[in-house]
Design a binder for these strands. Sequence first.
RNA 1: GGUCCGGUAGCUCAGUUGAAUAGAGCAACUGCCUUCUAAGCAGUAGGUCAUUGGUUUGAAUCCAAUCCGGAUCACCA
Length: 614
Amino acid sequence: MVRKVIETFKKDKWVLYLCADLTMLLQQTIKKVLEQVIQDSLGIAVAEEELIIQRTKTEFEGDYTLVLFGLVKKYKLNPEQIGSSIGEAACQKEPQLFKSYNLLKGFLNFSIQDQCLVDFLGTTYSNPQFGKAPVHAKRVMVEYSSPNTNKPLHLGHLRNIFLGWSIAELLKERGYVVTKSCVVNDRGIHICKSMIAWELFAQGATPTTTGQKGDHFVGDYYVKFNEAHKVQIEEGIAAGLTKEQAEKEAPIMKATQQLLQDWEAGKPEVLALWNRMNQWVYEGFEETYNKIGADFDKTYYESKTYLLGKKFVEQGLTDGVFYKKEDGSIWIDLTPAGLDEKLVLRKDGTSVYITQDLGLAEQKFQEYQYEQSIYVIADEQNYHMKVLQLILQKLNKPYANGIYHLSYGMVELPSGKMKSREGTVVDADDLIAEMIEVARTKTEELGKVKDFDAEELQKLYHTLALGALKFYLLRVDPKKKMIFNPQESIDFQGFTGPFIQYTYARIQSILRKESPTASLSMENKLEKEEKELLITVEQFPAILEQAVAEHNPSVVALYVFTVAKLFNSFYTQHSIISAPTDATRQLRLRLAALTATVIKRSMTLLGIEVPSRM
RNA sequence: GGUCCGGUAGCUCAGUUGAAUAGAGCAACUGCCUUCUAAGCAGUAGGUCAUUGGUUUGAAUCCAAUCCGGAUCACCA
């Protein structure tokens, strides 16, 4: 399904926004050259997508490989023959690009001229903006986080927030004009539950009097509601009611329903309490958002937007897209699209969830005229989002096709799903506090920053803790559900944020001793490790473009890990400061500087800071 | 039941517009700090890519069937 959507976007205009700087990329250049070479030497006009160019596997000689099978099959050619004639012609035509070629089965492996890469390094090493595309003013809205105001943020929200934030930043980096938005579900039965419980049990307590963070404070009353409700359900069942009846008829539930009606009627004292409790929650959220570096350009409140969708119902009825049933409820028939019939307005005239979302989509478009509107929402709402888009399409809304559901898998624990009723929900604030503690312990064990003052240490712990957490949640393909293993998440070795942060700190340590000097010439022969690192680093802009096209930050996480690994491998085998010649030292300093830039840019786009020492 | 998603090393994950001997990290084992930060590097071991059949010069990748797991199909949000 996801793949289909991506394809649709490709056919549409999404990927056509590919920026000019991509044509500078080595792989693209090779493709273009080979396209021409094949035309010249074989007289075949191949389409660009027919050419498969990939990195040469490490066990073979070469850097980039043209896979010949496709051509062989389509044009009924002999791989040996066309391989050597393409290879020969390419090396002759572009001697400054190709050093040599070799042919193995259907694979034509090219070695890139060292000088070509050295030139790239020379022009790029001091560019802190490497990877950034010029602004092209395509507008995108990214909605993420969207919490309920009855309880604090948890691990699931974190995956959502990190993903949404990162995808927004990636879009900006590639030239889009992005609005980050958040919808706060501030009304409804859930907040009324917390309100009732507070009225019944709090005796006037507030976050100030208890010293609690506001969102946790309110969340506790939500828990208290459920506890009281449970007791009353049991009483009801004991009195002979069915479970469903007992749930509905419980006095505390009745009171909650009454409160919701009073809220909708605008009863002043109810609104006052509602405002007050939401305010506590917002203060708590704000603190957490600041801690994790989340930010929004626009916040929508459900209490202000939930009525907007009703206009749609009228329009839909007029257009014949919706129909009215005898009881007065209004529906849309989506069975032709393979879905069901869907209610859009209750018989009492109140709107349902989908109706609200229709209204909000319209409002967002009125305000921002987006071309793409990305919703970062868990995959349990795939059906809902499909319906939303389908209805908007049927209503001929111009923005309907721009809706993209960035559907991510739920976070589970090794023990199974997180369940609030069983108390297995991992609280965001608690988790971050734990991570910071682990960062502190490990840092103290290693004892490398003993000269840091208290403030610098706090900053470092925070950087490492959030680096570990964000990387852990972002390194997995968003659309797959993931298992959060607490043991693993605090790991600082291997495929982790701190490993990459460490690599960056190492480079900074070198660059503090000596920075590259522009005037010095560079060696133009590359060691194997230098070359591999340089070729990988060169792909950075293409990686970003891929991450954007796929709406997938894990592409960046995987890539930056590869870069860090390659650097570390190079680092242990070759000395930078004590390189054999000045020219080599210069080259390695620049390579180190460019690697640091790529690491820093990648990590920044994932929302992760990098320390200069750790 | 309908629709959709997933199943790759002990664990967590890459690889899926078909392409070379299926890759990482963790865990296990072996080496490497008088040399730019060992939060590192090098190596060993670990696989019936859920199963079966098909298409193909070539399948983890495409098709069909089956098994297993999950999501969803509310006048909840």
